[in-house]
């Protein structure tokens, strides 16, 4: 049983790390602000969520689990809100999204 939990926690941790990596690559590679925001939002929902889930399994059931749950609760609210605020600010600042010109023609 312990081995299963151990392996499962590492699957979560590595999965979270992959999401974070993908998000980071997205920030660098995507063409404009809005698509980059899309990449960031993957980081702090799936990435951080999976890492926290993995840590909860590693720590066992204790006060630490409650604290991690609180952090998770905090993250799932603040992450999307921050991204929303950024997108809203960009929209109000009249930042145009980049559109593919080939398809328009």
């Amino acid at each position: 049983m312990e081995t299963v939990i151990y392996i499962l926690s590492w699957i979560f941790l590595l999965g979270g790390a992959i999401f974070l990596l993908v998000g980071a690559i997205g920030i660098l590679r995507f063409p404009d602000f809005y698509t980059r925001l899309h990449a960031v939002s993957v980081c702090d929902t799936m990435g951080a969520g999976l890492v926290l889930a993995g840590l909860m399994l590693q720590g066992g059931f204790s006060l630490v689990t409650v604290k991690l749950l609180l952090i998770f609760y905090f993250m799932i609210f603040t992450g999307p809100t921050a991204v929303h605020a950024l997108a809203q600010a960009a929209l109000q600042g009249k930042l145009k999204p980049v559109v593919d010109e080939h398809e328009q023609q």
Partner: peptide, 12 residues
């Protein structure tokens, strides 16, 4: 005027 930010602000 931004509803989402206001609700989250109230929540936190």
């Amino acid at each position: 005027k931004l509803l989402i930010l206001r609700v989250i602000g109230k929540l936190f």
